[in-house]
């Protein structure tokens, strides 16, 4: 399988990455290289093997339902470009 330039453009848009035409070509070559790897892996017979979501057979750790965090808003907002009345300000977005 190989990707078209159009598909590369779509993936880049989803990731909010701007690519020039030259970059699209280069990215397409790299992504197609990944597909070659996948093709090799797909050659392995996996009949009867249950797919895993994670590489280890481990269960997630759980925490008790208690509030452990304190208000650190002021420290967090020191690194924000712009804040007002406790809010983070971002360029206007209306969907």
């Amino acid at each position: 399988m190989s990707l078209s330039n159009e598909q590369v453009g779509h993936i880049a848009r989803l990731a909010r990455i701007a690519l020039s035409d030259a970059e699209v070509d280069a990215t397409r070559a790299k992504l197609n290289g990944i597909f070659d790897l996948i093709e090799q892996m797909q050659a392995v017979d996996t009949t009867g093997v249950e797919p895993m979501s994670h590489p280890q057979e481990l269960a997630t750790r759980l925490r008790e339902d208690v509030v452990t965090e304190t208000n650190r808003c002021e420290a967090f907002q020191k690194v924000a470009p712009q804040t007002e009345a406790g809010l983070y300000l971002v360029p206007k977005v209306i969907e």
Partner: peptide, 21 residues
Amino acid sequence: ASKIFSGASTAFGAEPNVQAS
């Protein structure tokens, strides 16, 4: 009482961002 993936409070109506860990 706390969030699904953090120990911050879920109480409604707090000042903005004081319960954001």
